[in-house]
Write a protein that binds this DNA or RNA. Sequence first.
DNA 1: GCCTTGAGAGTACGACTGTTCACTGACTAC
DNA 2: GTAGTCAGTGAACAGTCGTACTCTCAAGGC
Lengths: 205, 205
Amino acid sequence: MSHTLGIRQAQKQKTRQALMDSALQLLEHQSLSSLGLREVTRAVGMAPAAFYRHFTGTADLGVALVEQALGSLHDTIRAAIVTTGSSEERIDRAVALIAAQVRTHPAHVRFIARERHGGVAPVREAIGVQLRAFGDEVAEALGADPESAGWPPEDVRMLAGVYVDHMVMTASALLEGDEGSEEAVLATARAQLRLVTLGRHHWLD
Amino acid sequence: MSHTLGIRQAQKQKTRQALMDSALQLLEHQSLSSLGLREVTRAVGMAPAAFYRHFTGTADLGVALVEQALGSLHDTIRAAIVTTGSSEERIDRAVALIAAQVRTHPAHVRFIARERHGGVAPVREAIGVQLRAFGDEVAEALGADPESAGWPPEDVRMLAGVYVDHMVMTASALLEGDEGSEEAVLATARAQLRLVTLGRHHWLD
DNA sequence: GCCTTGAGAGTACGACTGTTCACTGACTAC
DNA sequence: GTAGTCAGTGAACAGTCGTACTCTCAAGGC
């Protein structure tokens, strides 16, 4: 599949990426429904009309951004679930993973948090699909865990939903707080996961 | 304090409310950062310049909407926490309360969910203040509960945060799903609360 | 090597935006 | 009763917006 693509295609993908990067930067201080097509092209330094060579409109660009922000995260998350160790260690690793993701890709995280309930329906839908996919994958991983033996599948899926929601909440909490409060947010996140883990241990009592 | 206010002031408050109502309606399909001042006045049927008699801009209007959407909810939530009964009964009542709130004021709930991480900083801040106040109030109510005896205050506050976050998540989940999936969302919400309650029982083990 | 393709430039269009200003006329204080 | 206050009007301002059009010219297929 990785056949070398021509100079032309390569250049097109490059400017497409430039459009997405500039858009992501502009979205730091506004939401997608107010992002102008001209605004993006101006930031990249090209004519407005050229935008249409890559996207049908800003909504389309938003969907592409969702793909980029969440598409590559599936394997990472799946791997995080199946790590071994005590509950405490696994919680630490999961929270550290979220913190790392927020630190390395803050703009992507902000975009997802902002547009998850934002005003652009296709983008909302795309994020919903991705998060539901995360939930399914986490549920599958949890189902394989011996601790989930005897659990009804819908309860496993419910628990997976808690983990995914908590991940999103923690990520956006990290963005909102000033950088000094990072450790406090992470400590709360760990405590919350401990609470859930405790409930999980006694679910079938 | 309830001294009859003149015809003039009454009329002003009336149009102010009309502006807020129209804005809320327009915000059903877009976010605040893309809401135009002219758009709102057009919906109300008055001249654009008159807007400034009531708000300094759309951000100011948004903050007023936050106040209206969440300001009156404090007593309701506080009352919901202190109800008696078994854990199961209390969970049912809490979830029913959320469902009722979403059913009676869907536009307000959508606005809060959308702008909580939206592109307008003052509005984000106002929502954050209100939700933190909810958390504090819930924490205070939880602290009075005999079940929380021996809990460190920060753990009580953490638990309160879980409840508030869960409330917001459930509310927005109700909005996203089609009306047929309401009972499924509520069932999941109840299960999640049961999980947290279970963890709560064993927190000090 | 030539012919086709297509990314991007440049220009122009009408519609819409936030903000200002002088104004009107119903209410209110005295 | 009269003078002043002030919510709302209507016109005008300079910008910005999305979109359509023709044009250019480097890359790629044959």
